[in-house]
Design a protein around this nucleic acid. Structure first.
Length: 884
RNA sequence: GGGCGGUUAGCUCAGCGGUAGAGCAUCGGUCUUACAAACCGGGGGCCACUGGUUCGAACCCAGUACCGCCCACCA
């Protein structure tokens, strides 16, 4: 027997197995079983591993390993996303340290800088995933800007252009002044902020008074081109059509009627700034209003805003405008007000709605088939409620702003001719050819990052080329992702998959839990509430982190995950303890194999109760774990295994069969016992392997086994014939009896070391033979010297008594019994049983329960009731004998 | 303003129609030769509230309260 450490030491084990698995090609598709494919959500190249990633990719790996063991031909394609804005920001920040802006070095040099950065750091996060044990096919790793992928993006743009789905237009879009780019509607976050509502007076040109308008953004008044009131608003009936003079600017603007103005808000009149507000823009369109742009792309007032304001930041301008209006006596009042504020999801800068020329995709047409496949159940969300949120959004989908005023990304494949025509082509050469000698310049903008990631499942498999991979592995099996990108990403992949490949990209969408901090807030680096998974694994090992996350991974439920304090994280500690338990149980078995070459993981038939019982429990465990994994109930799989391994296998089976398999002799019986325990252990390790790959591989390799690695061993299959209800019931009784004796010892303060005498009395022959057949184990586990079984207890003065499942127990003391303590104990026991009986009596007395409840339930209740009554009676006799 | 979750033992959470569960914490006892990261035993819950359906509800339905997400153009 090889030496084995007293405690599980994860780090060396992890380092040993991962490279071996990879070298042996286990991460590549193997064999010719059914196909199982996952394409991972590509993390941003700027990303470093956080706890959410750890959860996401652990779930991936669990499913991959499980399916692989089930004989599937498994492929998981990893990769990274170029993450336009995020990556550009990172590199710009680096430049700034050298006192440079991207404009100083120019577009080409800047992009080269970003590429350098990506080459150096872009693979870091994928590297970290190896540490988590992820069995991904690294040979097929993709990047959303690698050569082939660019082709896919260009292809998509060109096809959509040709289909008339892409257009260019001037509209009010969400502009982030800090990122200085347009962003799409779903990249905007909304937040209520404390602000003011300003009531301003706009005088009529003819001197007949003024109209009061309310606004939260007075600086935009410089761009007003009308004031609107509701057509049905009586107050303004005779004033609509009159001319107002815009304060501070002097521009004459009309008072118009438009349904957009709500009579009940403020004075019922709303100022209209078509160039700086989406609603105003639409009102402007309806009423042919001019659009006056007064704020620039940096969020500063421009020339048009007038000499007093030009160059001021929008928030400074707000103050200046209010001062000037105040001075002119045009401020009616200013109230505190909660302002719904739009923020850039990336940098939390206040969004500036800006009139701007951008590229858009028409979504309605694309959305319809993607709505249908979810409605028809061809794509299923887990938990299914996310299917409904998906449909809600898809049914109200709006056009998508795809252009970004950035340098890092896929440059829009549109070339402008001098005469204002757009040439859309897959490459510059193709554009040149189409231009017929006209001079062309490429559009300056790049595409939204999600424009490329929407193609992920088919693009990573080779699309638009017709590759074998695409043929073989598409559609993929499941998409595992976070709920905050259902719209940004999931919806769009379904649309492009259907549009370009003609088939759904995946049949299941598993939305996993969001990992929160202790207070239930989203984990955030800036708040310092984030937990670094690498710190956790350094402390407790990878398997412990995986298991800690998985056992909390209830369907759709968020996970609160505590920070590490004083080098401890209790949630992971629990999992580490479990790993250690697995380690030591295996260690114990290994220490007692005798001539190990004679041992194999094989179930030897046995009539012994514990053997029958553990086989039945193991079988049930296989069944439950398999079903749970199939249903993405990962926490249940983890919990079931934890319970089986610790409570049933370690606490009872090992203890029960110790003397047999750990015997010194090498008899056939001993070998059979060894085969059995190795069989149960080996099977347990297989079941645990997808969740805890490293420790299971390490231990499995040390056990007698067949095959080269547990990673490629077969997943255990349940076998109906191994269920054994009788054994499970009997074992339950036996455990209850042993526990009761231990309980008496403990409560009555009997010395732990003392070997007790135990009298058991019952007229139930089965119970009697249960005890006599397992007397050896009973004695050892309850520390009993002799068990005396009879029909009725002999008269014993100095004994503690109890009764369990109809069996009376008496434990004589060596000396005098502490009658007071014993009375207490027995009274408590009676009270407990009476309490239980009370409920049953009420039910049994209720005729409609007896009539209407299933007969089985009624009989069960009656039987239990009678049993309890008998037990109570015995206990009362005991109590009487104690002199109560 | 709409939609969706959550509310169960001191803490973190499972359970989702037939007598309340786990881990941690707590209390008592153990170096019982696999494991003190362990073992054995104990205590601790009107399952947020109010109604309803049911023989029976933590679990199903309706509503209330408080927490948290998502969506939404009300100045």
């Amino acid at each position: 027997m090889t030496e084995i450490a007293k405690a599980y030491e994860p780090h060396s084990v992890e380092q040993r197995w991962y490279p071996l698995w990879e070298e042996r090609g286990y991460f590549k598709p193997q064999g010719d079983g059914p196909i199982y494919t996952i394409t991972i959500p590509p993390p941003n190249v700027t990303g470093s591993l956080h706890i959410g990633h750890a959860l996401c990719y652990t779930i991936h790996d669990v499913l991959l390993r499980w399916k692989r063991m089930q004989g599937h031909r498994v492929l998981c394609v990893p990769g990274t996303d170029h993450a336009g804005i995020a990556t550009q920001n990172v590199v710009e920040k680096e430049l700034r340290k050298q006192g440079l802006s991207r404009h100083d070095i120019g577009r080409e040099a800047f992009i080269e800088r970003v590429w350098e950065w990506v080459r150096e750091y872009g693979g870091r996060i994928l590297f970290q995933l190896r540490g988590l044990g992820c069995s991904f096919e690294w040979g097929r790793t993709r990047f959303t800007m690698d050569e082939g992928y660019v082709n896919a993006v260009m292809e998509c743009f060109v096809r959509w252009w040709e289909a008339g789905l892409i257009y260019r237009g001037k509209r009010v879009i969400n502009w982030c002044p800090r990122c200085s780019t347009a962003i799409s509607d779903i990249e905007v976050e909304h937040e209520d902020r404390a602000g003011k509502l300003y009531h301003l007076r706009y005088p009529f040109k003819d001197g007949s008074g003024y109209v009061v308008v309310a606004t939260t953004r007075p600086e935009t008044m410089l761009g007003d081109t009308a004031v609107a009131v509701n057509p049905s608003d009586e107050r303004y009936k005779d004033k609509v059509g009159k001319t107002l003079v815009l304060p501070l600017v002097g521009r004459e603007i009309p008072l118009i009627a438009d349904y957009y103005a709500k009579s009940e808000f403020g004075s019922g009149a709303v100022k209209v700034t078509p160039a700086h507000d989406l609603n105003d823009y639409e009102a402007g369109q309806r009423n042919n209003l001019p659009m006056v742009v007064v704020i620039d792309e940096q969020g500063r007032m421009n020339e048009t805003a007038g000499p007093n304001y030009a160059g001021l930041d929008r928030f400074e301008a707000r103050e200046r405008v209010m001062q000037d209006l105040e001075a002119a006596g045009l401020v009616e009042k200013v109230e505190d007000y909660t302002v719904p504020t739009a923020l850039c999801a990336r940098c939390h800068t206040v969004i500036e709605p800006l009139l701007s020329e951008q590229w858009f995709v028409k979504m309605k047409e694309l959305a319809q088939p993607a709505i249908d496949v979810v409605k028809e159940g061809r794509v299923e969300f887990v938990p299914d409620r996310f299917g409904r949120t998906y449909l809600d959004w898809m049914e109200n989908i709006r056009d998508w702003t795809i252009s970004r005023q950035l340098w890092w990304g896929h440059r829009i494949p549109v070339w402008h001719t001098e005469d204002g025509e757009y040439i859309v082509a897959r490459s510059e050469a193709e554009a040149q050819a189409k231009a017929n000698g006209r001079a062309i310049t490429q559009d300056e903008d790049v595409l939204d990052t999600w424009f490329s990631s929407q193609l992920w499942p088919h693009a990573v498999l080779g699309w638009p080329e017709k590759t074998d991979d695409l043929d073989t592995y598409y559609p993929t099996s499941v998409l595992i992702t976070a709920r905050d990108i259902i719209y940004l990403w999931v919806a769009r992949m379904i649309m492009t998959g259907l549009d370009f490949v003609g088939e759904i990209p995946f049949s299941d969408v598993y939305i996993y839990a969001t990992v929160l901090d202790e207070q239930g807030r989203r984990q955030s680096k800036s708040l310092g509430t984030g937990v670094d998974p690498l710190e956790v694994t350094a402390l407790y090992g990878t398997d412990a982190l995986r298991f800690a996350l998985l056992i909390r991974c209830a369907k759709g439920q968020d996970i609160r995950f505590a920070q590490i304090r004083e080098n401890r994280q209790p949630q992971v500690e629990e999992a580490r303890n479990f790993a250690n338990k697995i380690w030591n149980a295996t260690r114990f078995v290994l220490m007692n194999l005798g001539d190990a070459t004679q041992v194999e993981a094989k179930w030897e038939p046995s009539d012994a109760l514990a053997d029958r019982w553990i086989l039945a429990e193991l079988n049930a465990t296989i069944e439950q774990v398999t079903a749970a994994l199939k249903d993405y109930r990962l926490n249940e799989a983890a919990q079931t295994l934890y319970h089986f391994f610790w409570d049933e296998f370690c606490d009872w089976y090992i203890e029960f069969s110790k003397t047999q398999f750990a015997a010194k002799e090498e008899t056939a019986e001993v070998r059979a016992a060894r085969n059995r325990i190795v069989y149960v252990l080996e099977t347990s390790l297989r079941l645990l392997h997808p969740l805890m790959p490293f420790i299971t591989e390490e231990l499995w390799q040390r056990l007698p086994h067949q095959g080269e690695a547990i990673m490629v061993a077969a997943w255990p299959e349940a076998d109906q014939s191994r269920d054994d209800r009788e054994a499970r019931e009997q074992m339950e009784t036996l455990i209850a009896l042993i526990t009761k004796v231990r309980n008496i010892r403990s409560v009555m303060n009997l010395p732990v070391a003392a070997w007790l005498q135990v009298h058991l009395a019952t007229t139930d022959e089965r119970a009697k033979s249960l005890v006599t057949a397992n007397a050896e184990q009973f004695k050892r586990l309850a520390r009993v010297e002799a068990i005396h079984v009879s029909d009725a207890l002999p008269p014993l003065d100095d004994a503690a008594r109890d009764v369990v499942t109809g069996v009376e127990i008496a434990v004589p003391f060596g000396g005098l019994i502490d009658k007071k303590k014993e009375r207490e104990r027995v009274s408590k026991e009676i009270a407990r049983k009476e309490n239980e009986v009370k409920g049953m009596q009420a039910r049994l007395a209720n005729p409609s329960f007896v009539d209407r409840a299933p007969r089985e339930v009624v009989e069960q209740t009656r039987a239990r009731h009678d049993e309890l009554m008998g037990e109570i009676q015995k206990l009362q006799e005991t109590l009487k004998a104690l002199g109560a």
